[in-house]
Design a protein around this nucleic acid. Structure first.
Lengths: 225, 225
DNA sequence: TCCCGTGAATTGTTCAACACTTGACTTATT
DNA sequence: AATAAGTCAAGTGTTGAACAATTCACGGGA
């Protein structure tokens, strides 16, 4: 076997990563059900390994496991969106307010995410724009300096992303929102934390209603099918 | 095999529950390493099932998995305690402040936990006192009305508990803290949310320093062994 | 139409084998 | 004696095949 690169991680973890990526990229749409045998075969791993991988993803919330009925890509409901954005507000806004000048090591990374975001929007690369958008927000959470919080938030972001990639299909590109991130970055680096927090709150409201609209449309489409 | 009880849940989940309970009860102390074969045999399940179970618990943070070196019960470091209590403050205090009279369905349950706690303390049943204490705090989180938050918080509480059961061995029973929960309950049901929040903040500080002390002692003991 | 067997398909679980790592122990070299 | 290299057993990682248990769709009978 090849295995050129160092495999410090187990095959099960690698399989989980591959599936995670497919889900977050929108290759596997919410509701898609996954069958163990064909999927394991297609990736060249055993069924047991595939089961470990799906176990991981179901604990992350990306897959939903129904006993004796297999796993399927999770579907966000409107209630889920509400819950997630409640949490985003609860976590991101205090993060901004906790951003002291002393730990400004995050700023360059925010700058980076911002640049990537703006470039992606210019090039109409929606998927990448989503990536950088969410990366920007993840970086904000870093101001809390709390590893557990970061992994929890990352899980939330994964769920959000699962919904956001559907926006592409809804032709509802929020191109008008481009300047918000830039503005937030400017306020943040100027130390105007309260203003930045206010802007963020507003931005999250926008984002939530946009995502809700998409989920609603999806739900309607499903019920007619 | 017996299997009298209804198994709506998979065996792997049941095994995970059993191990979780053992860890949270202090039967399996932090640092204990678990071997797949004997453990699986002792519970009468296959190695694969045991692996799924340990996978679950390691994603919950109760077990730590080192590739090719097996799993061990997680050890809380002082940094972990700090992180966890940072989060507890961040989540519990706003929960209190969000406690409106309109959803007071939690109050009776709080009352219940309170009674159980006080009884356990009177009877010097430390383990049960810890259970009711943590249940009380978990109920506070319910004021957020957010399922994701509750499961996340539950994970944190699991980690806290893993440390708290060590207190028993340290002979550091915080019996002087008995009235705090009662007082918090009274303030809460009287609608004096700000006062309650302030008391909670203080209580969390106490709790954190007590736990830190225990972890410190444990770490010292480990280094001399 | 409704209810109930029946059976194929799929998941849940077990078992046995082999591959790969690790850590301790042994041996060789200086 | 100290250190490095080699050896080996124990344990985890992964596989493949088998069987058990459950679900769901299908079709026969009241």
């Amino acid at each position: 076997m090849d295995r050129s690169q160092i495999h410090r991680v187990s095959v099960a973890d690698q399989v989980a990563s591959i599936l995670r990526q497919r889900i977050l990229n929108g290759e596997l749409l919410p509701g898609t059900s996954l069958q163990e045998v064909p999927l394991a075969a297609s990736l060249g791993v055993s069924r047991n390994t595939m089961r470990e991988a799906t176990r991981i993803l179901s604990l992350e919330g990306l897959l939903k496991r129904s006993i004796h009925r297999g796993v399927a890509v999770s579907q966000l409901s409107l209630k889920d969106v509400k819950e997630i954005y409640h949490l985003r507000r609860m976590l991101e806004i205090p993060a901004i307010l906790a951003a002291k000048a002393n730990h400004s090591d995050v700023l360059p990374e925010l700058r980076n995410a911002l640049n990537g975001y703006e470039r992606a929007v210019r090039e109409h690369d929606w998927m990448q724009a989503v990536s950088f958008d969410l990366q920007f927000h993840s970086l904000l959470i870093r101001f809390h300096h709390n590893r557990r919080l970061e992994t929890f938030y990352q899980k939330l972001i994964g769920e959000v992303r699962m919904g956001m990639v559907l926006v592409d299909r809804s032709h509802d590109h929020p191109l008008g929102l481009i300047p918000v991130h830039r503005k937030m970055y400017q306020l943040l680096s100027a130390g105007k934390l309260k203003q930045c927090a206010a802007l963020l709150a507003q931005h999250l409201d926008d984002s939530e209603s946009r995502l809700s609209r998409v989920m609603d449309r999806q739900a309607a489409k499903r019920s007619t099918t």
